[in-house]
Simulated assay, not measured.
Amino acid sequence: MTGLSGRLGVLAAAALLVSHGAASAALPEAVRAMIDAAIATGDEGKVRTVAELARVANPADVAEIDAMLAEFETAVAARKQAEAEAKLAKIRSAGLFDNWSGKGEFGAFRATGNSSNTGITTGLAVSRKGIAWRHNLTGRVDYQRANGVTTREQFLARYEPNVKISDRFYAYALAQYERDRFQGFSGRYAISGGIGYQALKKDDVQLALKVGPAYRVTDFVDGRVESRIAGLIGVDFDWSITDRLKLTQDTNAVAEAGGSAIAIIDSRNTTLDLITGLNATISSKLTARFSYAIEYDSNPPPGAVQTDTLTRVTLVYDF
């Protein structure tokens, strides 16, 4: 009896091993092919979705499915790291004229305030992004001439470098030149430096604030010159409403890349530039833009009014 019991125990163990082996059969070829096809697309979301469905349909093969997913994720992580290292190496070795990008803008404007007319507007902005540094150059011209008389002539040039301090904070510097004889000054120069803070940093919404002291010199058309210590407050806002429609408030953008809000405040005269706009993407390189700008001086020269408005309709080309 003891020998019979031993033989029966061996047979039961063998049956259990056979049963376990059947439960641990290799992943079906059709399922493996489906996962491999998803991996071939390189789409991480698609691969994870297919793997999850495969786990539900093949609970006995979860370990093998997880191994395939882990292998894919390891390869993706290695590729991303290699791309990031290559990008950093390219930035470090870039020359002075490398890694610049920009936007060119052309269209029409309608002005009210110190002048009431319609004319052409053009703008250019270029930027260069490094590992910690970013350089932004902006230029804008509004011009109108009728019956041999110039009725609108406004120029703006701005250079703003900034350097990242942390993930949220950065330090900025600003040098700006303006000319608008119809507002009463032949030249207005401002320099500033201070701290910026990235309050929102999401894929569809971004908000940055900056503040710092400023120094401004104004050459008036009547020959007077004023120099004053001031303060600067800036707001940059971007909201991607859809893939093709964006509301933007960005002080570094080309000539009303959407909207901007900058205030320079001193004891005698506060200047506020508030620009709101809407960008509609036409193609990967071309954007249609509508913007509305308010330019306010609390203490304008004699004969000038405090508030000017500018409505612009333009096309913007990225390069």
Rank of each mutant, 00 (worst) to 15 (best):
residue 177 Y to I: 12
residue 132 A to C: 12
residue 207 L to K: 00
residue 120 I to W: 14
residue 307 T to L: 13
residue 173 A to R: 02
residue 47 V to D: 08
residue 308 D to R: 10
residue 163 V to W: 04
residue 87 K to P: 04
residue 225 V to D: 06
residue 16 L to G: 09
residue 135 H to M: 13
residue 46 K to N: 06
residue 131 I to E: 13
residue 232 L to R: 01
residue 69 L to V: 09
residue 221 V to W: 09
residue 30 A to E: 12
residue 173 A to V: 06
residue 113 G to M: 12
residue 304 A to S: 14
residue 136 N to L: 13
residue 316 V to E: 01
residue 22 A to S: 10
residue 218 T to G: 14
residue 297 D to K: 04
residue 86 A to I: 03
residue 72 F to R: 07
residue 296 Y to E: 09
residue 1 M to Y: 10
residue 79 R to L: 13
residue 150 T to Y: 04
residue 84 A to K: 12
residue 37 A to N: 09
residue 104 G to D: 04
residue 215 Y to T: 09
residue 251 T to N: 04
residue 11 L to M: 11
residue 216 R to H: 05
residue 8 L to C: 05
residue 303 G to C: 13
residue 95 G to N: 00
residue 31 V to L: 05
residue 140 R to I: 15
residue 176 Q to S: 11
residue 264 I to Y: 11
residue 268 R to Q: 09
residue 117 N to K: 11
residue 106 F to C: 13
residue 180 D to R: 00
residue 2 T to W: 07
residue 4 L to Q: 09
residue 104 G to Q: 00
residue 81 Q to F: 14
residue 264 I to W: 06
residue 165 I to D: 09
residue 259 G to T: 00
residue 281 T to G: 02
residue 292 Y to V: 07
residue 137 L to V: 04
residue 258 G to H: 01
residue 278 L to I: 11
residue 290 F to P: 02
residue 318 D to W: 00
residue 236 D to Y: 00
residue 170 Y to F: 15
residue 250 D to N: 04
residue 146 A to K: 11
residue 100 W to N: 06
residue 203 D to E: 06
residue 211 V to C: 09
residue 286 L to V: 13
residue 136 N to H: 12
residue 117 N to S: 15
residue 32 R to A: 11
residue 30 A to S: 05
residue 292 Y to I: 10
residue 12 A to D: 07
residue 224 R to G: 12
residue 263 A to N: 08
residue 46 K to Q: 06
residue 198 Q to G: 07
residue 309 T to V: 02
residue 143 Y to M: 11
residue 173 A to S: 12
residue 20 H to S: 06
residue 262 I to M: 03
residue 177 Y to E: 07
residue 257 A to W: 02
residue 211 V to W: 04
residue 212 G to W: 00
residue 56 V to A: 13
residue 114 N to F: 12
residue 106 F to P: 10
residue 84 A to L: 14
residue 173 A to L: 10
residue 299 N to E: 06
residue 141 V to E: 03
residue 156 L to V: 15
residue 166 S to H: 01
